[in-house]
Design a protein around this nucleic acid. Sequence first.
DNA 1: AACCAAGTGGAGTGACCTATCCGCTTATGC
DNA 2: GCATAAGCGGATAGGTCACTCCACTTGGTT
Lengths: 224, 224
Amino acid sequence: MEPSSESGMCKRARRLRSDAEQNRDRIVEAARKVYRREGLSASMAGIARAAGVGIATLFRRFPTRMDLITAVFEDAMQRNRDAAVAARDAESAWEGFRGYVETVCALQAANRGFAEVLTMNYGTAKVLERQRQEAFEAFTELIGRAKREGRLREDFSPEDLPILLMANAGVLGAVGDAGAAASKRLVGQMLRAFSESGSEPLPPAPSPKELFRGMVRQRRSGGS
Amino acid sequence: MEPSSESGMCKRARRLRSDAEQNRDRIVEAARKVYRREGLSASMAGIARAAGVGIATLFRRFPTRMDLITAVFEDAMQRNRDAAVAARDAESAWEGFRGYVETVCALQAANRGFAEVLTMNYGTAKVLERQRQEAFEAFTELIGRAKREGRLREDFSPEDLPILLMANAGVLGAVGDAGAAASKRLVGQMLRAFSESGSEPLPPAPSPKELFRGMVRQRRSGGS
DNA sequence: AACCAAGTGGAGTGACCTATCCGCTTATGC
DNA sequence: GCATAAGCGGATAGGTCACTCCACTTGGTT
């Protein structure tokens, strides 16, 4: 709306004061840690505390939760996009496919926030939306190659990837410690289903004990 | 602790007054509806309101959330157990297996609360724990039969079922309207992975539009 | 009909959350 | 060095939640 507010730098309306810039970074860094552990529903107050700043500072810099999420996960989403592009250009399409799927699911396992970001709808966050779109397009091209290679089943659909990501996030969210093992197992099974030969090796199943004992206790209220 | 409080009836300490009994039933019925739609994190106050009783009445009858969950889902869990036993005794082990997996996943799709109940750890709710245990044991026997039949892959593990249930719950939780279609697709892929021949038919993938548009907006706070 | 324990609803408590207001502090340009 | 706008953080408003307390009501029994 306003025509060229000051100098050429139009990305940020005005340069931040140096201490403010530092606080911003501290907030993003703290949020990164908290989101990784607790997921996107982590409280704003908790993030501010972890960053060592007041609540107001957080809200001044990131008026909506989505602004913070965008700032935190922009680079992870970029790496995801780059991984998809690299897979698309890999020598063996199937190896690229398998590697990409395993990688992104492992990233989900390592970062609860990222697992949720990958499976949510970013209403207004155009940056994340574009990154996902680009990754998705690269992945779709990869699918074509892998099918022509004869290694990926013909009826595989691009939508099977987001479905797998949502499924994987579900497993990771439902089971705590044994999450990584269960996730690997799920991904292994899915890759088998995707592969034309169906002869993919399968990671070991987690033991019943770690699986059941790892399940999150209750959704709410720890019951006397 | 107390030796034989009064009469032989030791299941309920004392018979409820008739109006109290009626209120109890209304609460359970209301909770059934609310849990189905909103999942287990539905608020207690909302359930009381839906039942047309005061909050105190709800808490007097069901001191912890788990007590209410148990009362609501005991019969669904029993039906689940019965389905597993029936599948175990089915003529074709593979058909029993496939049918049971599809059935329980469809039940999850139809009932958000049940989807969560199937993937959680019931700390003190011994009834639910026993029902799950019995279902799990029947299912484990079924697995043996299906493997001997040569239709189920040798490396299938009983733990793959809970993993699938958690995955399915994740898909259903992440996507709203298109949940059923995405869930069916997931189950189809998994059954392919489980089957020795790998020639299971695959339900159609949901369209990208309904899949992405169906994704839940945000975890919290609807962004300005 | 009268008694009363069992039952009831709603106000109240305290915890936690997002989000804003406002008086004080400080980095920066001159 | 000084003026001042930018930035700061704590207090606070206003929401939701689980859960309790208590004065009143009512079903069942005699």
